[in-house]
Structures are given as C-alpha cells and as structure tokens.
Simulated assay, not measured.
Amino acid sequence: MIKVKKTMNSNAILAIDEEGEEYILLGKGIGYGKKIGDAIEEASINQRFIPLKNSSIKEYMSILEAIPAELLEVTRKIVSEAEKELNCQLNPSIYFMLGDHLNFAIERYKNNISVTNRVFWEVKNYYPKEFEIGLFALKLLKKEFGLILTEEEAANIAFHIINAEASPNMKGDGMNYSKLMSSVNSIIRYSVNTDIDTESINYHRFITHLKFFAERFFNNSLLNEDNNQLFEQITLMYPKAVEISFLIKDHLESIYSTKITKDEVTYLAIHINRLLNSQRL
C-alpha cells in the first residue's frame, strides 16, 4: 500500500510504500484533499518515480514544489503527448526539467527577456516529431495561460524531449566536473561574502545549469552565437551577476586555458541572478 508522506500541490505528492521507499507520484488532483497517511489509489497515479534515496531526485523534488499545479498538469499533458507520438517512455526527469523550463519561460515572457535558441534550425529539421510536440506545447500554453510564444520556444521544449528520449550520461572525468563546479561555487560565495543556501530551489537550478555547462566546457562545445543584444540586456539588468560571471570566466580561462564565450557568460549571469535573488543578497 502506498501512503501520502507529503503533499506538494494538488497534482503531486511525496509517497511512501510499505517497505519505506519514497516516491514522487503525479496525477491530476492526486493531492487534492489528501492528508499525511492517506492511502493512494493505484489508478490515480500517472507516473511513479524512482526512490528518493537518489540525491539528484531530491534536488528535483525541490524544483517540483516550485512549479504551480496548473503548469505541472500542462507539463504532464506535454509528456503524455510526446510518449504517444514518439512511441517511447521518456526519462522521468523530464517532468522536473521541462516543468522548470516552462516556469522560467513564463517568467522570461513576463519580463520581456528573449533568449535565442542556438540550435533552432537543427532541432526543427533534424527532429521534426519532437519539434511538432514543441508546437503542441505552445498551443497548450496559449490555451491555458494566454501565452503567445515563438517557435524558438517550441525548439527549446523539443530539446528537452530529445534529451529525455535517452538516459543522460555525463561524459568526461567526474573529478574534473566536480572541481570546476566547486571552484565556481567558491567564487560566488567569495563575491557575495556570505554562505549560499544549498537547500534553496534556485541553488539546485543553478547546479543543474553548472552540470550542463561543465559538460559543454570539457567537450569543447560551448555556446557561441554572439548574441550581443541579449548580453547587453542582461548586463544592464543584472550587473552584479555579470560581474561575478566575468570573475568565473577569468578564473576558468587561467586554470584550463579554454576561452569562455560571451554566450556562456550571459547564461551564467542569468542563473547567478536567480540564485542571488533567492538568497536576498
């Protein structure tokens, strides 16, 4: 028997089984009116996740709690459509990563921040099925929230779907990844002269971004599209975050003799700003 351990929102709960294993369960209205200890009907479960003893899933749970119930339901519909059209089961992390991406996309939309998709053409032409799912997602977001997003956002959504079609395996030396991420964290802590709340949602978001940055860094595939307009916009809006990004750039270039592109500095600044805001620094 599966019982409620914590209700995150009306569409997501943390559950525990008879053997003490914890799971995240999704389902429309699955958490509505539920109390700790209530039994969960198997038929109401749309997706069971792997046990939460996995540390990365604990991070994802924090992200999931920040996604509004209505957006989580839209995310579930997009994933369901993708699995039907692609005839495959996507990696369960898609619920966290896509949901968080959509939540951030809405935030960017409200603040009139436009982020160019560097692989728009490739996604649209090489992954037509996934791109169609992205277009389906845009229609759903317009219907549910009144958002009018560009086709580039459809490609962003498609990119998450593509990543979820196969189990993600980070390439390269794990020790190098850890050292890079540790040094970046140290620079941020030094710059703000205070400890960072490592349990905050935006910290987990930032770490997720750092993991992908590290992968690009060590595989010589850094973003490089010379988006000067976005860089200038972010420099004006988030000067402190940009300053820290350049400290990180200078440090990594001196250690690894690898040039950090302006695009990477820009996206680092965006995520650092979210982290600083969450810390109220």
Rank of each mutant, 00 (worst) to 15 (best):
A39L: 11
Q89E: 03
L72M: 07
H101M: 11
E41S: 14
T75P: 02
R76D: 09
V79W: 00
G33F: 00
C88D: 07
I36H: 13
I94G: 02
A43E: 12
L98V: 01
I36L: 08
I36F: 12
N91W: 15
D38L: 11
K53C: 01
C88I: 13
Y60D: 10
I36Y: 15
G99I: 06
D100L: 10
E41N: 07
A43Q: 14
L72A: 11
L71I: 01
E42W: 00
E83S: 06
L71H: 07
P92T: 09
A43P: 02
K34W: 02
N46P: 06
I45L: 08
V74C: 11
L98E: 05
E81F: 02
S56R: 08
A66E: 14
S44M: 07
M61V: 15
L71N: 04
I45N: 07
I67M: 03
K58E: 14
A43L: 04
V74Q: 03
A69Y: 15
P92W: 15
P68R: 02
P68V: 04
Q47R: 10
H101F: 12
A39C: 14
R48N: 03
C88R: 12
S62K: 15
L98I: 09
L64C: 06
N54F: 12
L86F: 02
L86C: 12
C88Y: 15
I94V: 09
E85Q: 12
A43R: 12
L64W: 02
A66P: 00
I57T: 06
L90N: 00
S55H: 04
R48I: 03
E81C: 06
E41F: 00
H101V: 05
L86H: 09
L52E: 04
S62M: 14
N46T: 04
S62L: 14
Q89L: 11
G37M: 02
I36A: 05
E81R: 09
Y60H: 09
M97S: 11
I94H: 11
Y95K: 00
L71P: 01
P92A: 10
S93G: 05
K58Q: 15
L86P: 10
L98F: 07
I67S: 03
A66K: 07
M97E: 14
T75S: 03
M97L: 13
K77H: 04
I67Y: 02
K34A: 13
L86E: 12
I67W: 03
A66F: 02
E73Y: 15
N46G: 12
H101C: 10
E65T: 05
Q89P: 00
Q89C: 01
L64T: 10
I94C: 06
A39P: 05
A82N: 08
Y60S: 08
I57G: 00
I40D: 07
Y95A: 00
I40Y: 00
F49D: 03
M61I: 08
P51K: 12
E59P: 05
R48K: 13
Y60I: 13
S93M: 08
K84F: 01
F96V: 14
L86A: 12
I63C: 09
L90M: 01
S62E: 09
K53I: 01
D38R: 13
D38C: 11
I50K: 14
S80E: 13
